Amino acid sequence: MRKTHPALHNYDKSTIQAKVVQETLILVRRQSGDQACICLYNFSDAMATYTVDEKYHTWQKNLDSCGQQWQNPEENSLLSGSTLPDEISIGNELTVHSWSMVMYSSKH
């Protein structure tokens, strides 16, 4: 994904922003031209919420560590896959699972 996504392929540190949303929820935003991505990292045993306030109108989910493809079938996991929507926009509230991350890309 790093090689094909423009925002991840750009190594200019001035295009990367990070902010603490909550004590254990970190938002990282990367940009390259008009392409951007946001990643939310929840470093907690509890779920965390984030209200989308990014400038682009619509965001498309690229990666969610709670997705079925990342689940270990040998474990008796309480997670049954991702509960986050595939598309989000300004004002949507996201609930990020404990010890997980999600990445969304701008959609024009």
Rank of each mutant, 00 (worst) to 15 (best):
Lys13Gln: 14
Asn76Lys: 09
Leu40Phe: 08
Thr49Val: 08
Pro85His: 09
Gly91Glu: 09
Phe43Met: 12
Cys37Asn: 12
Val52Lys: 09
Tyr11Asn: 04
Glu23Val: 04
Asn76Tyr: 10
Val96Cys: 04
His57Ala: 10
Ile90Ser: 02
Lys107Asn: 05
Thr51Trp: 02
Phe43Glu: 13
Gln22Ser: 13
Ser65Ile: 00
Glu93Cys: 14
His108Ser: 08
Thr15Lys: 12
Ile88Asn: 08
Asp86Arg: 15
Cys37Tyr: 06
Lys13Gly: 14
Ser14Ala: 15
Tyr104Lys: 04
Ile26Glu: 05
Arg29Leu: 07
Ser32Gln: 11
Gln68Glu: 11
Asn62Pro: 01
Asn72Gln: 04
His5Ile: 09
Ile26Gly: 02
Phe43Gln: 08
Asn62Glu: 01
Pro73Ile: 06
Glu74Gln: 13
Ser44Asp: 13
Arg2Ser: 15
Pro85Cys: 12
Tyr41Thr: 15
Val21Pro: 13
Gln68Met: 02
Ala18His: 10
Ile38Arg: 00
Leu27Phe: 09
Pro6Asp: 03
Asp45Ile: 03
Ser105Ala: 08
Asn62Gln: 12
Tyr56Met: 03
Ala7His: 09
Asn72Asp: 15
His97Pro: 12
Glu75Thr: 05
Gly67Cys: 01
Trp70Pro: 05
Asn72Cys: 05
Trp70Met: 08
Ser105Phe: 01
Glu93Asp: 12
Val102Cys: 07
Trp99Thr: 00
Thr49Trp: 07
Gln69Asn: 09
Ser77Cys: 00
Asp12Thr: 05
Val21Trp: 08
Tyr11Leu: 15
Ala48Phe: 07
Thr15Pro: 12
Tyr104Val: 02
Glu54Pro: 01
Asp34Leu: 02
Leu27Asn: 07
Asp34Tyr: 04
Glu87Trp: 09
Val102Pro: 14
Val20Asn: 15
Pro85Arg: 11
Ser80Leu: 09
